[in-house]
């Protein structure tokens, strides 16, 4: 049987990939996809610990994480569409000025 450490490593790798993507990609949509990737890492992590401690609480957290992810996706994507309408681009750098 596989131990929790391995899951944690995989979860951390997913999280780090998401972080790298969020920081390095300039497309707003890909940035948000990267945050979803980080969510996946967290979910794996939380469930792995839930397994370790023989608790279901971790899974409950994971479920709440899903809810948060859904909320974030809904609002963020709505905002993205709005921003895209204003600037005509998805480049995050287009919003580097405070005006407009």
């Amino acid at each position: 049987m596989t131990g929790v450490g391995e899951y944690v490593v995989v979860g951390a790798i997913l999280f780090a990939l998401g972080l790298v993507g969020f920081l390095s990609r300039r497309n707003l949509i890909v940035m948000f996809l990267s945050t979803e990737l980080m969510f996946q890492g967290v979910v794996v992590n939380v469930v792995a610990f839930s397994r370790l401690h023989e608790h279901v609480d971790g899974q409950a957290f994971a479920l709440f994480l899903l809810a948060i992810a859904a909320v974030e996706a809904g609002l963020a994507l709505g905002l993205l569409v709005l921003l895209y309408r204003i600037r005509g681009t998805l480049d995050a750098d287009a919003w580097s000025t405070m005006s407009g």
């Binding site: 972080l19 390095s24 990609r25 497309n27 681009t89 480049d91 750098d93």
Partner: peptide, 17 residues
Amino acid sequence: PTYDRRAREPFAAVLAG
């Protein structure tokens, strides 16, 4: 678009990760 074809500061991002 260029913003899809070019990552910003990839080295720093990878370093953070």
